[in-house]
């Protein structure tokens, strides 16, 4: 398993950890294969692109992100932009982890 992040930028270990955890959460919540989530890059479309990601799945995704990443996601944080691409969701998770 690689520890590549969704961006081409060099990353520290904690960022890789968030990346890997986020991929695992998407795999578990959406019932995707590991190979599929390993292939996600920053531009991979999520909400509106993955048929598995409906609004019920979004609720599960956010709750699981809070649990596994030890962050708190406020309802006003949730918008189309953060869920649009994998890169957007990862950037959001990283920012929240820094806040926490």
């Amino acid at each position: 398993m690689t520890a590549d992040t969704a961006t081409a930028e060099p990353t520290g270990p904690s960022r890789s950890e968030i990346d890997q955890t986020l991929r695992a959460i998407l795999r578990d919540v959406l019932g995707l294969d590991q190979t599929q989530v390993d292939a996600f890059d920053a531009d991979t479309g999520l909400f509106g692109h993955l048929p598995e990601l409906d609004s019920m799945a979004v609720a599960g995704l956010l709750t699981e992100m809070e649990d596994r990443l030890d962050i708190v996601i406020e309802d006003e944080d949730v918008d189309g932009e953060m869920l649009e691409t994998y890169g957007g969701l990862l950037a959001f998770a990283e920012a929240k982890a820094v806040e926490g």
Binding site: S55, A59, E66, D67, D75, V78
Partner: peptide
């Protein structure tokens, strides 16, 4: 609390899709 939070979140997301504004 996590179960309640998830239920509230589901309701908020459904409301948002329906064009309604609700807060937790």
């Amino acid at each position: 609390a996590q179960v309640l939070r998830s239920l509230v979140r589901t309701r908020l997301l459904s409301a948002k899709e329906a064009g309604k504004q609700e807060t937790a």
